[in-house]
Design a protein around this nucleic acid. Structure first.
Lengths: 287, 287
DNA sequence: AACCTTCGTGCAAATTATTTTCGTCTTGCG
DNA sequence: CGCAAGACGAAAATAATTTGCACGAAGGTT
C-alpha cells in the first residue's frame, strides 16, 4: 500500500492541521521530500509533533520512514494526482506516456491476482495445444504475444484474431487443450461466445480481462486486469503495456514449469538465428 | 544524475570502508533505505562519520538527503545492478518482470532522442502511405502496433513481417511514402536490404533500432533504442515494453500533427464499435 | 446550563540521530 | 627514516525527532 493511496483514502478524516500538511505534500512534493520535520512543520504552520502524528496516521513508523516511503512511491505514483501536463511538446508527450506506462505497471503489480496467474500457468504448461484469442488491435496484439512467448518454450500454440476462426478452432479443440483469450474491455461478445462454446465442450478457458465483465464470467480462470483508463483520446492506452507485462509474467511462470523442454527449444531457436544472421550470439531470441 | 550511476562511477576510488557501505547498498537495499546512519554504520562495520563522508562523496548534502536520493532512484534504477532474484515464486517473478519493465521505460526515457522522434513524426504525418516492417516475433509485433496506432489517425498504413513482401512493398513504394522498420538487434539483414532498396528509390525510411547497427546505418532517420538486455533466457525481454512505449510516443506526436483528421477518424471508429457492441461508450477504441 | 469526554494541538523535556572536531593510525613516497 | 596525505573512529556538539503532558475547543450527556 503506497502512501498516496493511503492519503487519498484518509483525506476526509484528516484534521485541519493535517490537511495543511497533506496539501504541501501534494503541491510541493519536491520540498516535502527534502525538508526536515521542522521545515515541513514550519511551512504547514503546525508543530513538529503534529507532523509526526500525521506520519503515523498514514501508516509509517516515524517521520524518516515516511520520507522514505514518500520518495519511493513518488516516482511512479505521483502524477496521477496531478492534472495532465497539457503541452504537445515532444518532451512532455514522452514524459506523459512513460509515466502513464510506469503507472500502469505499478497498478498492475499492485492488483495482480497471483493465485489466478499460477492456475493459468499450470493449465498452459499442461496443455496439449493452446489457442490464443484476441481481437480489435490491442487484444489481437496480446494474442500474438502469447504465441510469440509460448512457442519458444516448446508449447504448441496458435493465435487468432478472427472471430469466425476462433469459433471453428474452439469447436475443434479437445479437453486436453486450453483456450486463452484477451479482452481489454471485457465486452467482446464473440469471445464470450467462443468461451461459452468451449465450456459446453469442457475445453478449459483462461481470460485476461476486467473483473466481473462478461468475458470474465464466461471463462474458467480469469486473470484480472483492472486499470483506470486515461481520457486523452490521442494518447494510446497504457493498459497495453500492462497486458504485455502480464503476458511476460505468465510466460515466465510457464517457462519454469516446462523448464527442460524450454531450454532445449530455446537453444535450437538461438542456433537457428545465429546461423541465419551474422553469428553474433549476443543477439536476442527473435528480432 | 542518480545515485547508482555515481556509485558505479566512483566505485574504484572508494576506500575499503566505503566499499563495504556500497556493498550493503547493492546487496541489501531494503535494509539500507530504512536504516539510520548508526545502523548502517554498524552493519558495514564502520563509524557513523564514515557513512556521512561516504554520502558526501556521492554528491549528497547529508545522510538524509542521501536516503531520499536512494529511495527515489531505487524503485526504478536498482535491480539492473544486482544479479537475478533467484526465486521462481510467482510473486518474485512478477516483481522482477514489472521492475525490469519499469527500468526499461526509465532507461528509454533517459536516452530518448527527441529530435529524431520529431523528425520521424513529421515524416509519418506527411506520408501518403506508410509501410511498417518488422520480423522475428518481437519486431513484427511492433510493426503491427504501428499499424494499430496509426490507422486510427486516418493514415494509410500496412504492416508486414514477411521479408519477401517487404521487398516487394518497398519496390512498389513511392517517394511520397514512408517505410518504418523495427529491429531490436539492428542486425536484420533483410530489413537492411529493404532499406537499401528504398534509399536507391528515394523512398524515405525510419528505423527503430540500436544506434550504430547495420539497420540504423541503412535508414534515413534512426530513432535509437539502446537498452541493456537481461540474461535470464526464461524471462522475455523487457525491451519490448520500451518499444511499445516508443510507438506510443511517436503515434501521439503524429496524432497532434494530423489532429482534425484524427479526431474525425477516431469518432467514426468509436461509433462503429459502440454500434457493434453493447452500447457502452466508455469502452476503448478497439478491444 | 453545567459537566464530561474526546480530540487536536503545542510546549518543553527527553531521546535519538547526525555532524563536527580532533587526534591517531596507516600508507606511500622522497 | 621521516613526512605528508588520507582514512578512520571517539567523543563532543549540534540538530532532529519523539514523548509526555497540559490546555482548549467541539460535541455530547446528564
Amino acid at each position: 500500500m503506497d502512501i498516496f493511496a493511503t492519503l487519498q483514502h484518509e483525506k476526509e478524516r484528516l484534521s485541519q492541521s493535517e490537511s495543511r500538511i497533506a496539501d504541501i505534500l501534494l503541491n510541493d512534493f519536491e520540498f516535502a521530500v527534502n525538508a526536515s520535520i521542522i521545515e515541513l512543520a514550519g511551512k504547514a504552520d503546525v508543530s513538529p509533533p503534529t507532523v509526526t502524528r500525521f506520519c503515523r496516521r498514514l501508516g509509517c513508523d516515524s517521520f524518516s520512514d515516511f520520507k522514505v516511503q514518500l520518495a519511493r512511491t513518488a516516482y511512479v505514483g505521483m502524477r496521477y494526482l496531478k492534472p495532465e501536463p497539457k503541452s504537445q511538446e515532444p518532451g512532455d508527450v514522452a514524459q506523459d506516456i512513460i509515466t502513464k506506462a510506469q503507472n500502469a505497471l505499478f497498478l498492475l503489480h499492485r492488483s495482480l491476482d497471483l493465485a489466478a496467474i499460477e492456475q493459468a500457468a499450470d493449465r498452459l504448461a499442461g496443455a496439449e495445444m493452446i489457442y490464443a484469442f484476441g481481437s480489435g488491435g490491442n487484444s489481437s496484439m496480446i494474442a500474438g504475444e502469447l504465441q510469440n512467448r509460448l512457442f519458444r518454450l516448446g508449447l504448441r500454440i496458435t493465435s487468432s484474431s478472427d472471430h469466425s476462426m476462433q469459433l471453428m478452432l474452439t469447436a475443434a479443440a479437445k479437453q486436453s487443450d486450453v483456450i486463452i483469450g484477451s479482452s481489454f474491455s471485457g465486452r467482446n461478445a464473440e469471445l464470450v461466445r467462443a468461451f461459452t462454446l468451449a465450456r459446453d465442450a469442457k475445453v478449459p478457458t483462461i481470460a485476461l480481462t476486467q473483473t466481473g465483465s462478461p468475458v470474465a464470467r464466461a471463462a474458467d480462470i480469469t486473470v484480472p486486469v483492472d486499470l483506470p483508463e486515461g481520457n486523452n483520446i490521442y494518447r494510446p492506452t497504457s493498459t497495453r503495456i500492462a497486458y504485455v507485462a502480464l503476458v511476460d509474467i505468465v510466460a515466465s511462470l510457464v517457462a519454469y514449469r516446462v523448464q527442460p523442454q524450454a531450454t532445449a527449444t530455446l537453444r535450437r531457436i538461438k542456433q537457428q538465428l545465429v546461423a541465419h544472421r551474422d553469428g553474433d550470439d549476443r543477439q536476442l531470441l527473435g528480432d
